[in-house]
């Protein structure tokens, strides 16, 4: 049974994957980067499924330094918070790797239009892969298996 940690601020991915991938997978949901770090510290997971946007997470749950980010936006905290939300998946991934966790990560975000960005991230934060976020559960299953087996 493959143990998958789904990190998302809602529950859509977990519900969908649990409903359609009933054989060979066990899904656990973490609602934030902090929650995910706690779970990963407590027990091993074969692979992480990571959403990119976290626009429903409480502010205290978002990873990333709001003040530092605000400087990028002429000091505007609203823009900064939105940036943290929009890129929270990246912040979580950076935090996992910073904590020495090498569990493979499947990101739900379409990087196909940004190949250079993806190259940089994969080099820095591997093992990591991504899937278009309209991917069907069957495609998700295929990628999870590939990632977990080191493919």
């Amino acid at each position: 049974m493959m143990q998958v940690l789904v990190i998302e601020d809602g529950s859509e991915y977990t519900e969908t994957l649990e409903r359609f991938l009933t054989e060979g997978f066990s899904f656990t949901r973490a609602g934030s980067g902090r929650g995910a770090l706690a779970l990963l510290a407590a027990r091993p997971f074969d692979v992480v499924f990571l959403d990119m946007r976290f626009d429903r997470a409480p502010e205290g749950e978002l990873l990333g330094d709001l003040e530092l980010v605000a400087d990028r936006f002429n000091g505007d905290p609203v823009q900064a918070r939105r940036f943290l939300e929009d890129h929270q998946g990246n912040f979580i991934l950076a935090e996992l790797r910073g904590a020495g966790l090498t569990v493979p990560v499947l990101m739900s975000y379409d990087f196909s239009a940004e190949p250079r960005r993806w190259e940089r991230l994969a080099e820095r934060y591997g093992p990591v892969d991504y899937l278009d976020d309209v991917a069907s559960p069957a495609e998700v299953a295929e990628r999870l298996r590939a990632l977990a087996s080191g493919g």
Binding site: E12, T16, F20, V134, S136
Partner: peptide
């Protein structure tokens, strides 16, 4: 993204 993507799985 969150809804139409499950249609194929429902069909399966």
């Amino acid at each position: 993204k969150h809804h139409a993507s499950v249609l194929v799985s429902v069909a399966d």
